[in-house]
Amino acid sequence: MRADTEQDILKTELWWTALVTAVVTAIMLAIIYAGLVHHINPPSNIETVDPKTLHLTGEFTEGNLGTRVDGSQITSRIVATQFAFQPQCIVMPANRTVTLRFATPDVIHGILVTGTNVNTMIIPGYVSQVHTVFTKTGDLLMPCHEFCGLGHSQMWATVRVVPEDEFKPGPDGRVTCDAR
């Protein structure tokens, strides 16, 4: 490497800076491509809900939780509370677009579903929402992945992904793990 004059150094450095810029640009282009073509977005959803009265809201009232089919929409509503999910098992069909909606009445939680890209924080005050397609069938783990208190380690639920033809909603449009 030449370093005889300041000009030499400047020239090498400009080349390197150009390379760095190219790398950063390439990464950004990849992200923009994913956003434009695959519609990849972070799970932003500034939809407020009061944690103090969450259990009275209707949508996130205990009896309304779990998976429900409503026309073409398949939505599962799940509450994360210290230190369990309600319900503790949800059913989802494979290869269909589904929406998961989460809320918490108490503190910060978060979820991921192992082996998938489903991942969101659950913040008191907001409904968290993830749209996804499950491609593999079977029981997947859905742990709480954010510290929520001393019982955090024992807080997890199961996502039961079933083949499309076995996904049969009841007369009220609901599908539960018990019914299967």
Partner: peptide
């Protein structure tokens, strides 16, 4: 930008739930 809830890439699901809560307590 976050002025409306929901993702710009997906329609928002609707809910007209009327489940009975197990307790009527409202915290404040």
């Amino acid at each position: 930008v976050g002025i409306l809830p929901g993702s710009p890439a997906v329609r928002q699901p609707t809910s007209e739930a009327k489940a009975q809560p197990t307790t009527q307590v409202a915290w404040s």
